[in-house]
Structure formats: C-alpha cells, structure tokens
C-alpha cells in the first residue's frame, strides 16, 4: 500500500510559505502533544519507529488534512487506545 508520507520529488506542490512563527509552538496544545510523546517514548510505551509508523499509516486524506501536531495526536491516540475501548469502536 502506498503511504502518504513519502513526499520527496512528488510533483504538484506550490510555493513554500517561508514566513516564520514567533513561537516554536503555535498553541499550548501542540506543546503538550510534543511533551506527551516524549514521556511515552521515555517510558517505553512505544518506540520512535512505532510512532513514525503510526503517522505513516494514517489514511492519505487524514494525513493531508491534519496539521503537523494533529498527526502526532492521531498517532498517539491510536497507539494508546485500551483494548476495551477499541472494541467499542
């Protein structure tokens, strides 16, 4: 299955928005997602490769529509679902 993340050399992309944000995180929730990921990696809940794989497995339209840290959040949400709640889905 083709994954949505392999963008190198893909045609059809326009100009780069080179503007700089004043703050490293645009919103508080982004910083919290960043920190949650660090803590779960440090605790060994999943590996960095598993985290990347979870992002790369997102449906192409989800991947394309989500902001950067929303992809992280989707990946973490998916990897930390407990079996019981998974059954409810």
């Amino acid at each position: 299955m083709e994954r949505p993340h392999d963008l190198g050399g893909k045609p059809g992309f326009g100009a780069i928005d080179v503007a700089e944000a004043a703050e490293p995180f645009h919103n508080e929730w982004e910083a919290r997602v960043f920190a949650i990921n660090r803590l779960l990696l440090a605790a060994g809940r999943y590996t960095l490769d598993e985290f990347r794989d979870a992002i790369e497995r997102l449906e192409p339209h989800v991947y394309a529509d989500a902001s950067y840290y929303e992809r992280w959040l989707l990946a973490i949400e998916g990897m930390t679902v407990e079996p019981a709640s998974e059954a409810e889905r």
């Binding site: 993340h5 963008l7 100009a15 780069i16 928005d17 700089e20 990347r52």
Partner: peptide, 26 residues
C-alpha cells in the same frame, strides 16, 4: 522528505516550512 527529522537539540523546534509538504517534496 519522509517526515520532519531535524537536529532539534542544536536548532530548537523546526520552522513550519521545514515540515511543510511543499518543502519536503520540492
């Protein structure tokens, strides 16, 4: 091109354009 790998310890959080599809593709 695949994601957003970056020497974050040396440069701090990466700029938005570095993570953009446009930069990664082109």
């Amino acid at each position: 091109t695949l994601c957003s790998c970056y020497p974050i310890a040396l440069l701090g959080p990466s700029p938005a354009w570095y993570k953009s599809a446009e930069y990664r593709a082109r």
